[in-house]
Design a protein around this nucleic acid. Sequence first.
DNA 1: ACATTGACCTGAGAGC
DNA 2: TGCTCTCAGGTCAATG
Length: 262
Amino acid sequence: MPELPEVEIFRRYVDATALHQKIRSVDPRSTYILETAPRSMEQCLKGHAFDSTRRRGKYIFAALDDGDFLALHFGMTGSLKYYKDQADEPEYTRFLIEFTDNYHLALVMPRKLGAVQCVPSVEAFVQEKELGPDALEGIPDFGSFQHVLEGRKGMAKSVLMNQKIVAGIGNTYSDEILYQAEVHPKKSIDELDDGVLKTIFTKTGYVLRTAIDRNADPDCFPDSWLIPQRHEGGRCPQCGGEVRNIKVSGRSAYYCPNCQSL
DNA sequence: ACATTGACCTGAGAGC
DNA sequence: TGCTCTCAGGTCAATG
């Protein structure tokens, strides 16, 4: 599921493939994910080129040469594919950009839970969505982390997943972070002492950074991690006990009842 | 103002 | 085989 590490890999993919090429046409296959009208979308992109990219949480912003941005969100099934021949167009292409050199950039998304739009300013967009600081780059030290959590009362997992508090962490990585910090997903955040909070902060950086270093490919994650065991019948790498699955705010949370007690 | 829940989307996989 | 049901988890609106 595209959380911060996957989205960062997508961002680098755009950097490596689709920059500095003039856009010939835009083909919105699904208006459902379009948050900018098709006409203004075309006006925004056609004849322009992407200069650079930025990421905030789970959003990518591709900067156009006239100052606008294309904002991309991948929902839970989104990905990008860059290719030349029309015959190589992936199934479930929901938004398609064609460059003047005949290459294509497709937003592929079986479930239409993502979004595409043109925005004049990243800052205004972030403000409108009330996005919190980026989980990796927006929280430089433990003091900032404490500040971000100030006054929060919810369950640890829900807090980590709340994009208005910290942007970029979703269901899968919140489980990993709490597993490594040995915190029960339902533990109230305001009941944790500074030592534990500091561990959560440290593990957040470690987990996200390591995932990016390994191409956000779970097959390459360390054996000591929960994610490879995050399924029915999975075993805790630490104690060998069975991993448990419970519902936390309507999401399925995996954890080790032995290592992460309440 | 905050926390929590349910709806949306649609393919995969289970069960009958 | 083929139908129905449940589940996955991103965000957002509605509810507590």
